[in-house]
């Protein structure tokens, strides 16, 4: 499982304040804590409050690169913000994200190719959020076809079925989970799959429990990557155990700490 730590996001008060005041220490500690907890990659998002994301995102990238060479997931809906981050990125990059809209694909896929990055593709378009599995698959196919035509390696594409809060879209949960499996059979080589996990529990009273059960079920569908809170220890234990049950790692009595040693 490719684990992307979600905590460097300006929407969290401590990070928003640190971005505003250019407080390196807060950002770097947050980066290191997530890596120590098992993150393979760090999401970097200035958050909605940032007035100058075009300079805030590169600042975050440079500050994080001082303490780690782990990949960074540059998170913005604005291509120019992502490119500003790419220009200063020395670490490997995941572009987070492109949608199925032609004008977004036309800009971000070439950018991903040029900078040799991985790319997250959201199965969403200007028409709105998909309402069922078929719509998700159609949007996924649009993204995969565009990547294949543009010469972007499909195995570097991470498709996100758009996880909705369980208390808002309970009827869609089954479709979302099944989409993860079906995305894999769109093409050969397969695209990879990813979820932004925390959204599933928005507004619920048992967020951690909902997160970890959804993740377990998604892993059973063949999920390749997740954007999540790696400091949630129970969540990480559930992730490790799910992969163990799928024979991704060799069992030993200390399998939880063994995974973290990797």
């Amino acid at each position: 499982m490719f684990i992307i730590g979600e905590l460097i996001n300006g929407m969290y008060n401590n990070i928003g304040k640190a971005i505003k005041e250019h407080d390196k220490a807060v950002i770097q500690k947050c980066a290191q804590d997530q890596i120590n907890a098992g993150a393979d990659c760090l999401d970097v998002n200035c958050g909605p409050a940032s007035k100058q994301p075009v300079s805030d995102l590169p600042w975050l990238v440079e500050v994080i690169q001082e303490v780690t060479d782990k990949p960074l997931s540059l998170d913005s809906s604005k291509p120019q913000v992502i490119e500003a981050g790419l220009k200063v990125a020395k670490n490997k990059v995941v572009i987070n994200s492109v949608t199925a809209d032609p004008e977004k694909l036309a800009v971000l896929v070439p950018l991903a190719k040029k900078y040799n990055t991985k790319l997250i593709g959201l199965t969403i378009s200007a028409k709105g959020i998909p309402q069922n599995k078929d719509q998700r698959l159609e949007l996924a196919a649009t993204i995969v076809a565009h990547c294949a035509d543009a010469g972007f390696p499909v195995e570097d594409l991470y498709l996100d079925p758009i996880v909705l809060p369980v208390n808002v879209a309970q009827a869609q949960m089954k479709d979302i989970l099944e989409s993860i499996h079906e995305f894999k059979i769109i093409s050969d080589p397969s695209p990879k799959t990813i979820v932004g996990l925390s959204n599933v529990s928005q507004g619920t009273k048992a967020r951690n429990l909902v997160n970890r059960i959804f993740l377990t079920m998604a892993i059973a569908q063949g999920l390749d990557a997740a954007i999540l809170d790696p400091l949630d220890n129970d969540l990480m234990d559930a992730l490790i155990t799910s992969e163990l049950i799928l024979n991704k790692n060799i069992y030993c009595d200390s399998f939880l700490s063994a995974y973290r040693k990797k």
């Binding site: 069992y251 030993c252 009595d253 063994a258 040693k261």
Partner: peptide, 13 residues
């Protein structure tokens, strides 16, 4: 026993 081999390496490290 692969499970014990792995466990022992962890205990030693």
């Amino acid at each position: 026993d692969i499970n014990i081999a792995k466990q022992l390496n962890i205990l030693i490290s």
